[in-house]
């Protein structure tokens, strides 16, 4: 499971948690998150996220 961070506002999408509020089940891989989904905090597009390196 990986994490992806919004480059604008630092919100982190955690694949393990998903985003159930909007039907994105826990365990949903970043690649499977719909292309039109955007950052819940600042509205930035999926393309504005980067992989979090541990």
């Amino acid at each position: 499971m990986k994490k992806w961070r919004c480059l604008v506002c630092d919100y982190v999408y955690d694949e393990a948690l998903g985003w159930p509020d909007e039907g994105i089940a826990p365990g949903t891989k970043w690649a499977d998150v719909p292309a039109g989904w955007s950052c819940p905090d600042c509205g930035a597009s999926k393309g504005d996220f980067e992989l979090v390196e541990d």
């Binding site: 480059l7 930035a44 393309g47």
Partner: peptide, 9 residues
């Protein structure tokens, strides 16, 4: 509007 939708563009 496009700037807020795609801020790093």
């Amino acid at each position: 509007s496009d700037h807020h939708a795609n801020p790093t563009r």
